[in-house]
């Protein structure tokens, strides 16, 4: 059985923009997939195709066991969506907004109202419940929109950049809500620009660029792809940069496809790929000391998702540029 969300070869073009160029995804039931990618990569378009808002030119999509193209209405009963831009009615109060959404999910007026009150409480909007959304701050609107996506706690949820514009405390709280939902069996596809968020919430991460999934896996798998640990040294004296760099080269894994020793002159910082962990670090410190190189800082750095993101999407962009130049050169 395919996962709660399944997409195969989704293609969508707008005029001559190929927004989706064959997106393949699979999200097992009860898990979170984080969709990462630079601006314009096709994240929102993917979400819109999977939530019946946009009809892909070709490809297949299954959500909650239902064919998105053939049974859109049944799909809508099984999903909750919070789009990239908060979609709330500015002239309705917070409560009225949620109650309306509840009723349109075919709840009875009274049940919809009770549910609205619950959600307002959960999203820290109880105090503002009877004010029109026009008077809400950006973050409050965002929370109201998220609450609207959760009105019926549907089995499959889509959130397009849910925490953009939220302050740290509200972001934390939303993370808690999401974790609760997922522990209750909800499947979630979330797009985000915050790699920390994907690291924190997502079981699986898919990196999208130019309308294609260019890498997918757990956060650890992706980090492993980008390479292992690095040692970072900041020397005290500018004239020691050369000697420190030569010294670090001895420990470097360069040549093993792990990149090279890099020097950032203005910060007096030298970085090199290594393997060996804390033991190696101690060794390097001793070596630097015996050579009379005074240091301000030294540390072992593991790749972050930021590194993964930059190396994956940066690399693709370069490769494409190379192709372009080759073609024009011919």
């Amino acid at each position: 059985m395919p996962g709660a969300i399944y997409a195969e070869g989704l293609v969508k073009t707008f005029g001559n923009v190929r927004a989706l160029d064959g997106v393949d995804l699979e999200v097992p039931e009860g898990t979170v997939l984080g969709l990462l990618g630079p601006n314009g990569a096709g994240k929102t378009t993917t979400v819109r195709c999977l939530t019946t808002l946009l009809r892909p030119d070709s490809g297949k999509a299954v959500v909650a066991g239902l064919d998105v193209l053939k049974q859109p209405d049944a799909v809508r009963r099984s999903i909750g969506l919070s789009g990239q831009f908060a979609a709330v009615d500015e002239y309705l109060t917070g409560r009225e907004n949620l109650q309306m959404v509840g009723q349109l999910y075919q709840m009875k007026a009274k049940a919809a109202k009770a549910r609205a009150d619950e959600l307002l409480e959960q999203f820290n909007l109880a105090d503002a419940a009877d004010r029109t959304a026009k008077t809400y701050s950006g973050g409050m609107r965002r929370r109201l929109d998220l609450a609207a996506a959760l009105v019926v706690s549907p089995p499959v949820m889509f959130m397009d950049e849910p925490t953009t514009g939220l302050d740290p405390r509200n972001r934390q709280q939303l993370w808690e809500v999401i974790k609760q939902l997922v522990s209750g069996g909800t499947t979630l596809l979330l797009t985000t620009q915050y790699l920390e968020e994907a690291d924190h919430l997502a079981h699986d991460i898919a990196v999208v660029d130019h309308g294609k999934v260019i890498a997918q896996g757990t956060s650890d798998q992706l980090k492993a792809r980008t390479g292992g640990e690095r040692v970072e040294v900041v020397v005290h004296e500018r004239e020691h940069i050369q000697s420190a760099s030569a010294l670090l080269d001895k420990y470097s894994l360069r040549g093993a496809g792990q990149g090279d020793t890099t020097v950032e002159d203005h910060m007096r910082k030298i970085t090199t790929p290594v393997s060996g962990g804390a033991k190696l670090l101690a060794e390097i410190i001793r070596d630097l000391d015996t050579n009379g190189i005074e240091i301000d800082d030294i540390g072992l750095r593991r790749p972050t998702l930021d590194d993964v993101f930059l190396s994956l999407t940066g690399h693709v962009a370069e490769a494409k540029d190379d192709e372009d130049t080759k073609e024009t050169a011919k």
Partner: peptide, 17 residues
């Protein structure tokens, strides 16, 4: 413009409503 039509279209409501 405000994205409300998207919200409505993602809900299991009647198409002409």
């Amino acid at each position: 413009h405000k994205g409300l039509i998207d919200r409505f279209r993602s809900l299991p409501m009647s198409r002409g409503a």
